[in-house]
């Protein structure tokens, strides 16, 4: 009796370590870098990290729905970039010399946000329709869309970088609540996070999404409207990319056709690190946050340690593989 009990607790410690390996890794990295470079624990660095994380988190949340239903959205990065360009174009200063639309009146921020979301939702609608009705594999469908969106963005902007943004717009990134300490970008991320948590856990749409990911045929038999749910998922994803693009333009004070290029891969990596199953049906809003945080923390930690950027890519790649390999082990053991 005694031995079985102690064995059980040893086992449970092991499983705790296994299940939370990523968080533990996170803490170890932070402490290590913090000891070597005390500035790592500064408030400014924390705010900077959270700003990066917030935008990436919104993108990752968007893509998570696609991943949970065993789909994908490779057009994410380009959609973010396109949204950033539109937002920047519509929010240039009136006195800026090379204005895109010289006679454009000053639009309220939320109107521009709505325009950007509406435009990107159409991209998502197209993705959803192609995936649901033409039955093109999401990987391929959204790969095509990635190129299309890039092309549209090139045609629209003429490949000219857009600058001269209004100060009320850039203030979204530089300013914030509590005397500017709590960036508006955090606010966006928190609102999106709360919305997604509610959607995934408390609504029929969320349950249907997990059901499709768990077993698409069984979900259909159970009466789930699979095409409709998928279209909603892809539209929501693109809408969130629009929000992220809007914030990116504000944060970097401008946008170009290359803004956010390749961000879909970071987002997919963050989701998988955060426990979104590549075989579908599994994924939590909280886990995705951890995944994004690991990724951004890693980048900043390596910057602080003065590691050359070229090397950081190698480390990032390794982290993705190791994290997913550890995650899969959990399921393999259950077989």
């Amino acid at each position: 009796m005694e031995t079985t009990k102690s064995k059980f607790s040893a086992k449970s410690i092991k499983s705790f370590l296994g299940n939370n390996a990523i968080i533990i890794l996170l803490v170890i990295i932070s402490i290590g870098v913090g000891i070597a470079r005390p500035a790592f624990f500064s408030w400014d660095n924390f705010v900077n990290l959270m700003k990066n994380t917030s935008i990436r988190y919104i993108i990752a949340l968007g893509i998570s729905g696609c991943l949970i239903t065993t789909g994908n959205d490779l057009s994410a990065g380009r959609t973010v970039g396109f949204a950033a360009c539109i937002a920047a174009i519509l929010l240039q200063r009136g006195d800026y010399a090379s204005r895109f639309y010289p006679n454009l009146p000053e639009l309220p921020l939320f109107v521009v946000l709505l325009i950007v979301v509406a435009v990107c939702a159409v991209i998502g609608l197209a993705n959803g329709l192609v995936v649901s009705y033409l039955k093109v594999q999401p990987f391929i469908a959204t790969l095509g869309m990635q190129t299309i969106v890039y092309g549209i963005c090139l045609v629209y902007t003429g490949a000219v970088p857009i600058g001269g943004l209004r100060s009320d717009f850039t203030n979204l990134a530089t300013g914030g609540l509590f005397g500017g300490q709590f960036s508006y970008i955090f606010l966006f991320a928190i609102v999106v996070c709360a919305f997604m948590w509610f959607l995934y856990n408390k609504t029929r749409h969320g349950k249907y999404m997990y059901a499709i990911g768990g077993n698409e045929v069984a979900a259909e038999v159970a009466g789930v409207n699979v095409p409709k749910t998928k279209i909603k998922i892809y539209m929501l994803a693109s809408s969130l990319f629009a929000v992220a693009g809007f914030l990116m333009a504000a944060k970097s004070g401008g946008a170009s056709v290359n803004t956010a290029q390749g961000y879909e891969l970071d987002a997919i990596a963050a989701c998988t690190i955060g426990g979104v199953s590549t075989t579908g049906g599994i994924g939590k809003v909280s886990g995705i946050f951890v995944g994004v945080l690991v990724f951004e923390l890693l980048k900043i930690a390596m910057q602080f340690m003065g590691i050359e950027t070229s090397y950081t890519y190698i480390v990032q790649g390794l982290v993705i593989i190791v994290a997913v390999a550890m995650d899969i082990r959990k399921y393999l053991a259950k077989k």
Partner: peptide, 12 residues
């Protein structure tokens, strides 16, 4: 193949 949603809970 067409009945259970394997990874989801009994409640789901």
């Amino acid at each position: 193949a067409t009945g259970i949603l394997g990874v989801l809970s009994v409640a789901d």
